[in-house]
């Protein structure tokens, strides 16, 4: 029996549903010794902004129970240097290349970034990072664009107007209800939703009564956030039509499957890349093995295949 691992996200054909999450895979080159990068479904590069950013003070990371806090602060060399020195390696891999972009203060920067990238052929899709907890948007009603449905829709729509590329909108879990935000991204013209960015968190060194990272608040990732992420994918899946890329604490085949079954069409491996740089390759192999063992003809049939709960949620 053969099994089909391929999935579609907007106009992208992924040969399997395993991608790597922005900010956890550098610009792909860092991982070339560890695995055959061409086997990945897609690569998402570290979020790039128009101008260079030097990021937040150190220490920027600390370990937490089954996870980590980070406050990198979107350090990146800015679009021009990115295009010249970082992009070429990933562009040559021959797999879908997704460039994550963010604005620093004015959402109009998304439009400018999208316009510049529209002309770059090797870029297959844009991921709109409207959910980084480590940059603050001056003057906005909420700290993050993705905490406000109207602002979310407006940003997605403005990028949609200037871009023919597949648009993925990455959302923050730091909201009371994720569904209206995902719906707003869909209404703005997004081709897919990426869920979740990091959860805000704190970690205190009791002896010194100080935050363990230089910033008081950072973004939590790793296995610790997985149940929250799976729940959000499940909630959103039932309310939108566009595909979901699920992430948050995936470390092996079974945790990847959780997301697919909850409703994700594809998954991203994040923090686990730090611990085990070859893990995404093993998850691809594991998914194939799982599909064969369970006589699943297409991995697409797993999406949203969760067995109906005995107790139906109200409404």
């Amino acid at each position: 029996m053969k099994t089909d691992l391929s999935v579609r996200i907007g106009s992208l054909h992924l040969k399997n549903p395993v991608m790597v999450a922005s900010g956890t895979f550098g610009y792909a080159e860092e991982f070339k010794d560890f695995l055959d990068l061409r086997q990945l479904g897609a690569v998402v590069t570290k979020t790039v902004t128009l101008k260079p950013r030097s990021g937040n003070p150190s220490p920027r990371t600390c370990e937490t129970p089954s996870g980590m806090l980070n406050s990198i602060g979107l350090e990146n060399p800015g679009l021009e240097v990115f295009l010249k020195t970082k992009l070429p390696f990933a562009a040559k891999l021959g797999i879908p290349l997704i460039v994550s972009i963010a604005s620093e203060s004015d959402p109009q920067e998304f439009v400018e970034l999208a316009c510049r990238l529209e002309r770059v052929k090797s870029v297959s899709a844009l991921e709109l990072n409207i959910s980084c907890p480590n940059v603050k948007h001056a003057g906005a009603a909420t700290a993050l664009i993705s905490q406000d449905p109207a602002a979310t829709k407006a940003v997605v729509r403005s990028v949609r107007k200037v871009s023919t590329k597949t648009i993925i909108t990455k959302l923050s879990p730091n909201v009371t209800d994720i569904v209206p935000i995902a719906q707003a991204a869909q209404a703005g013209g997004s081709d897919a939703i990426a869920l979740i960015n990091t959860l805000t968190g704190m970690c205190i060194d009791v002896r010194r009564r100080r935050s363990r990272i230089a910033m008081p608040v950072g973004g939590l990732s790793g296995p610790a956030v997985r149940p929250v992420a799976v729940r959000m994918v499940w909630e959103v899946y039932r309310k939108i039509k566009i595909p979901i890329i699920g992430m948050g604490g995936i470390i092996d085949t079974f945790s990847a499957l959780e997301f697919l079954i909850a409703g994700a069409a594809a998954i991203s491996v994040g923090t686990a890349n730090f611990v085990d740089p070859a893990v995404s390759g093993r998850i691809i192999a594991g998914l194939k093995e799982y599909a064969l063992e369970n006589k699943i003809a297409s991995v697409r049939s797993l999406t949203g295949s969760i067995v109906k709960p005995c107790v139906q949620p109200k409404k």
């Binding site: 560890f34 990021g55 920027r60 980070n70 890349n273 730090f274």
Partner: peptide, 22 residues
């Protein structure tokens, strides 16, 4: 020394300010 999450240059958790940037 710096707090390191990945050790392979991917996370940018360990950067230090130098005369040639981070």
């Amino acid at each position: 020394e710096a707090h390191m999450a990945c050790g392979i240059g991917a996370c940018l958790g360990c950067t230090v300010a130098t005369t040639a940037g981070n």
